[in-house]
């Protein structure tokens, strides 16, 4: 296929729009418009990031946990504090039994694999994310519950952050009706700032394809301003803070 010869698609009509010449032409036109030569060195950016007073914003771990859980609850989510992963396991068993869930999907994360859910739930289909399987998206679409361990959380906004990887599908936190997010207490930052700075600091080839900040359940106010929960993404969202 033509694709393999050139990533930008040589031999295709659209290749001219993706060419280096076109890019240079554009940048030169911008510089001309701005009435100065082209800038190719990184400019001084004195206003980078949040204002100074905000950089100083921080909370003790207990305060972070409380604020995160409060915000998550106010958004229409449910938040519980748990002392260990065993407690998370027990919660999941109860949740599956009480809701009559038929299918549960979880990320391939050691914390979750260690729960022994598949063994405990005989009559429930328990799937672990498998990037080599063809039909993972369909599996996720059919799942009642998706379970993830989050990478980060931010107390101030009530946000969890999940990063994609071969072991962590983007669909797990998106397609099932209910999302159960395990939030290690140590992963909760006071605000978004440190998490975003962490993304800047990563080597470029180590940024995941998808970094998703999730703040409460899926919602819409498009019909007469009437709040609807769970329009496309999960409407039932649990945050289990562990530690």
């Amino acid at each position: 296929m033509a694709d393999t010869r050139n990533k930008q698609g040589s031999g295709k009509a659209r290749a001219i729009y993706a060419s280096k010449e076109r890019q240079d032409e554009w940048m030169q036109a911008i510089a001309d418009r701005l009435g100065r030569p082209r800038i190719t060195e990184m400019p001084q950016h004195p206003f980078r990031g949040a204002p100074d007073f905000w950089r100083a914003y921080d909370l003790q771990q207990e305060e972070r946990i409380n604020l995160f859980m409060n915000n998550w609850t106010n958004l229409g989510g449910h938040a519980f504090r748990m002392s260990s992963m065993e407690e998370v396991g027990r919660f999941l068993l109860d949740f599956v039994r009480e809701t009559g869930a038929q299918k549960l999907l979880m990320q391939r994360q050691p914390e979750l694999m260690g729960l022994g859910l598949a063994e405990a739930l005989h009559d429930v289909e328990c799937t672990v994310w498998d990037s080599s399987a063809e039909e993972m998206i369909d599996e996720a679409a059919q799942a009642d519950i998706g379970v993830v361990v989050v990478d980060h959380a931010a107390a101030y906004t009530g946000t969890i952050v999940v990063l994609s990887s071969p072991d962590k599908g983007r669909s797990t936190s998106l397609l099932p009706r209910a999302l159960v997010a395990v939030v290690p207490a140590s992963a909760i930052e006071a605000s978004l700032g440190p998490i975003l700075k962490g993304l800047d600091a990563r080597p470029k080839d180590q940024l995941p394809a998808g970094v998703h900040f999730i703040t409460g359940p899926s919602r819409s106010s498009d019909i007469e301003n009437d709040l609807t929960i769970g329009v496309h993404g999960p409407g039932i969202v649990y945050a289990l803070v562990v530690g």
């Binding site: 993972m136 599908g169 394809a209 998808g210 970094v211 703040t215 899926s218 993404g233």
Partner: peptide, 20 residues
């Protein structure tokens, strides 16, 4: 305070990823 979803997408799925 923040929209329900804020997604930062960097390139297509990585070769070993299962979706995207």
């Amino acid at each position: 305070k923040l929209t329900a979803y804020m997604s930062a997408i960097t390139g297509p799925r990585r070769t070993a990823d299962g979706d995207g």
